[in-house]
């Protein structure tokens, strides 16, 4: 190659992913799909189950937009392989409301104006649900430790905190254990 010429690309296509038969209880229903083994839970939910309420934003665990409950605990679905959730229970935003009846967190988010662009909202609601399940009346420290994994770019957090606090006031105590 002559000097001061750079050449890029020409990569051979990568080896095909092996296929994984994914079986998982999503929002109470058993779902079975054949997926490339390297599919994340986020993409399994969105691209293979059309459950697009769970949002991807940074896809490296920094923003919490893709938060779902895995066996009741909040996780970033972008950092979990679908295969790792084999025979587990996954709960997404789609399971929070029941028909026209909103979950109390959804109702408070709506009333407080906590959803603006709304993109972080599903992840925040899932994280908040996990927080309130663990700490029905969170102290400021517990609140921050529970919510610090979720980023909102447009509200400045005030309305979100307000919504979660209002929901906490009406949260059943003691919490029901699933």
């Amino acid at each position: 190659m002559p000097e001061n010429v750079s050449e890029h690309g020409g990569a051979a296509s990568p080896a095909d992913d092996s296929i994984w038969h994914w079986r998982c209880k999503v929002n109470g229903q058993i779902i079975e799909r054949d997926l490339p083994a390297s599919t994340t839970l986020l993409h399994a939910l969105r691209d293979h189950c059309s459950l697009t309420g769970t949002k991807g934003a940074c896809e490296e665990g920094e923003c919490g937009s893709c938060t779902v409950l895995l066996d009741g605990a909040p996780v970033n679905s972008c950092l979990v392989l679908a295969a790792q959730t084999q025979d587990c229970q996954v709960t997404t935003i789609e399971a929070m409301a029941s028909g026209r009846k909103l979950h109390i967190l959804q109702d408070k988010f709506l009333a407080a104006g906590a959803a603006q662009c709304g993109y972080c909202t599903p992840g925040l609601i899932m994280a908040a649900a996990a927080l309130l399940k663990q700490h029905p009346d969170p102290t400021p420290d517990e609140f921050l430790q529970g919510m610090e994994g979720n980023i909102c770019r447009c509200t400045g957090y005030k309305a979100i905190s307000e919504a979660i606090r209002q929901a906490a006031q009406e949260w059943p105590t003691p919490p029901e254990v699933p």
Partner: peptide, 27 residues
């Protein structure tokens, strides 16, 4: 070896890790 995945899946997402065989320890 894949433990919690909080590092490896970042690499996967960035295209820095193309797994051939994965040993999932989370079960």
């Amino acid at each position: 070896a894949l433990a919690g995945g909080t590092d490896l899946l970042v690499a996967l997402s960035r295209g820095q890790w193309r797994p051939k065989n994965v040993l999932d320890l989370s079960r």
